[in-house]
Design a protein around this nucleic acid. Structure first.
Length: 476
DNA sequence: AGGAGCTTAGA
DNA sequence: CTAAGCTCC
């Protein structure tokens, strides 16, 4: 049986894995391999939380492969030489993989494909990650979309769920002579184990992804349309890290949703599909506007007056010590669990970029290091959206008021109280803005900051003024 | 995927 | 006086 390398990256699953499936379909014995080459991500090497997740996901993938008689080879980069060497060592005739779309690695992968094909090898790549690849959808003028709603309307009209590609119960074995790095030697796991608080919440790997999907279908899907905005409830799918690492295919999620769709839950199903749509839109934008990982998409912000980088202020934001309870709750949830509720991401992002007027990249970099679901496309879209610099962004003048947001979406302050226990002795109504109850706060919450690091009204006004100054002359 | 400030309808 | 609606930022 001829051998084919199956090169795993962000498709850490066996089920519904096009590259693996195609290798088997074409009669090859797959040799699964993962190449560790973080420095090739051009400034976006996986952050700490991502690496911790990756460690576990690779462990799970190897275990799943071994349960079927195969195993995962680990190699150190650089990627091209590592894979070419493995092709020679194994005598494989072919290499299959699922595409990645990040601007740093996509050209590299395309060049490798050409190179291997010139050497007479079979080199094929597939879509393992998206409902629509970034170039599949275009406006009537043939250009990229910059507004979500028409993008998603087009996508929904073309959406088809492929039949699942099951993985065989047994796979050909991988010869013991093919060497592999030790997983621990890749240095992905957290040392010391600062991530110990993560794993009550998460089960990395393919089995964990399917568990999370089942839990979502049985629970948060019902009422998703409104509860997804409620950080005090389990109102979201918690699928984002699983989708990022490709532990489940997005079309599998769509298929499962369509299976359970009823007249009663149709609005909830559609609301969740729309969120998957934002993920698709993020990849579309990243592909067409690759500079936006660091540069504003909207050129109006080229000369925007961000406040000078302020390490002391940034540290307060990162550590959840801003004096704004909902902001601090979110930042502490992030640090403790590797995750933050999406509504709260918008609130902390608005606080950083509007009230503090710090450049959104400060936020993007921190999220990149701390989120288990850190994803270059989603992170870029999210930060540019909240900063007002991106596609389909809220206009810059939309400044979230963190007090009214908390009152609206965490009405009993249970989320705030969970993550900011210093406030627990205060009456609920005072926990949203303790500085408005100074006497009570001094007695009952003495260890919490006396006042927000930036006055809410002043911060808002200063942000709006800066926006006005950056406006093109004709629109002032 | 907003908020503030003002107006207006209605208790 | 409060709540909902509207407008502009």
């Amino acid at each position: 049986m001829p051998l084919a390398l199956v090169w795993f990256r962000q498709d850490l699953r066996l089920d519904d894995n096009p590259a693996l499936h195609e290798a088997l379909e074409q009669g090859y014995a797959p040799v699964p391999v993962y190449v560790h080459a973080p420095e090739e991500e051009s400034g976006w090497a996986p952050g700490g939380a991502s690496r911790a997740w990756l460690h576990r996901s690779l462990q799970a993938l190897d275990a799943d492969l071994r349960a079927r008689g195969s195993r995962l080879l680990l190699r150190n980069g650089p990627t091209g030489p590592a894979l070419s060497a493995l092709l020679r060592e194994t005598g494989a005739d072919a290499i299959f993989w699922n595409r990645k779309y990040e601007p740093a690695t996509q050209p590299r992968d395309a060049a490798l494909k050409r190179e291997w094909r010139e050497q007479g090898l079979v080199a094929e790549s597939f879509n393992g990650a998206l409902l629509f690849e970034p170039w599949e959808l275009a406006t009537q003028q043939g250009g990229p979309y910059k507004v979500f709603t028409p993008f998603w309307r087009n996508a929904l009209g073309r959406l088809r769920v492929p039949a699942p590609q099951a993985v065989p119960a047994t796979l050909p074995s991988v010869a013991e002579t093919f060497a592999s790095e030790d997983l621990d030697a890749l240095g992905l796991a957290a040392r010391p184990a600062w991530d110990s608080g993560f794993w009550d919440k998460w089960h990395a790997g393919e089995a964990g992804a399917h568990e999370a999907l089942e839990v979502f279908l049985d629970g948060a899907l019902h009422g998703y349309r409104s509860d997804r905005d409620r950080p005090d409830r389990v109102g979201t799918s918690l699928l984002s890290p699983h989708l990022h690492f490709g532990e489940i295919a997005p079309w599998r999620v769509v298929g499962a949703l369509e299976q359970v769709r009823t007249a009663a839950n149709a609005a909830d199903v559609d609301a969740y599909l729309r969120e998957l749509g934002w993920r698709e839109f993020a990849y579309h934008l990243l592909h067409h506007f690759p500079a936006t990982t660091t540069a504003n998409l909207n050129p109006r912000f080229e000369h925007f007056e961000w406040a000078p980088g302020d390490d002391r202020q940034l540290q307060a934001w990162r550590h959840g010590l801003t004096g704004v309870p909902i902001v601090d709750a979110g930042m502490r949830e992030l640090w403790a669990t590797g995750y933050m509720h999406n509504r709260v991401r918008m609130i902390v992002g608005s606080w950083l970029t509007k009230h503090m007027r710090q450049h959104w990249l400060h936020g993007a970099r921190w999220f990149w290091d701390t989120l288990v679901d850190a994803d270059l496309a989603n992170n870029t879209l999210g930060w540019q959206w909240v900063a007002g610099t991106g596609a389909d962004a809220s206009p810059y003048f939309r400044v979230f008021n963190p007090v009214t947001q908390a009152q609206k979406f965490d009405p009993a302050a249970t989320y705030i109280s969970r993550w900011v226990p210093e406030l627990q002795a205060l009456p609920v109504a005072a926990r949203f803005a303790p500085w408005l109850h100074a006497e009570l706060a001094r007695r009952l919450a003495p260890s919490y900051p006396r006042a927000p690091m930036v006055d809410l009204a002043q911060g808002r006004d200063a942000a709006l003024a800066a926006y006005k100054r950056s406006a093109p002359a004709e629109s002032r």
